[in-house]
Amino acid sequence: MSDPFVIAKTWQFNVNQARAAGGTQLKDCQVILKMIVDSMRGFALSPWVVRLSSTNGLAGAGYLWGSFTDVVWASGVNPHSWVMLTNANGWEILFDCNSVGPAALSVTFNPTAAWNDTGSINAAPTPTAGKAYKFKTDTWFTKGLVAVGGMTHAMMTTDGQCTRIACYADGSLCASMLFETLTDVVTGAIPWALPVVCYIGNNDSNHFTITGFTSIPGIFTRYNDVSYAGQATSECSLVGPVPVPHLAAGVPNDISGGYGGCRMGFASTVYGFRGCHGRFQDMWLGSTAITDGDMYPAAPVLYQFTQLKHMITPWNSAAALLKV
């Protein structure tokens, strides 16, 4: 809990990226997914790099998504697009558009960057068994069929440990992604080689909300070569119990006058991985009384943090978060 919050990492921001209504949900999804990838690639320090990709007409090394029209969804072995991003730490993420509808996506996180093949226009690369986890094979974009404009926001630490994505359409959060290295990790006889957790919200009520952070499966990770799901934690009263930022609904902290936030952790109830594992960096659980997109602090330096639904995250200190 801190009020004001204290940042542990240095952050960089590709945020407030405007997007006009595409005219169709397909175009909206194409434009947004490409904006996300471009944002992840576009950071000044430790940017994600596209190692392999497919446009549905061509698969190969490097970044082949020259325009949004190169982002093509199709199911099964039909030609479709995918992109594999490599992180400064050597992890890789695969976004695979292998579904009929553009609102669905398969996302694989591969901490060892070990793959059996380089893929083709018909199939994304296959991760080496026992090393990767496919944590998303369903909805990533929840705005529905109405084509609308909005904003895309990507935030990343300068060391590449944490990447956060928030996309708005028509003023509401419609896509949410987290790729997070935990800290204060519980030590065990078998070290947790790569304490990274991944999250993608899959419906309107899940984007960075208590529900989304808690639902099983909600947040995925891998320890000792086994993938499993977990959930976020934060400070709560012991009897009741209620998350501390929500202790008195609708009112700020009576002493500080602010709404504040509590640090967030990660735990699992999955057999073999039970208990708390570590803590998110620079992430806080905020009050439900705060409007999505509100900023902290009110003074003296504005816009240092923003609250996206129930999650508080560092912001660029330069401009308010725009949602439309």
């Binding site: 959930q231 934690t233 934060s234 400070e235 998350p243």
Partner: peptide
């Protein structure tokens, strides 16, 4: 008193 807990429930970790 308060402590770290799951968000829904909530249950102390």
């Amino acid at each position: 008193a308060t402590t770290e807990s799951t968000l829904v429930g909530p249950v102390p970790v």
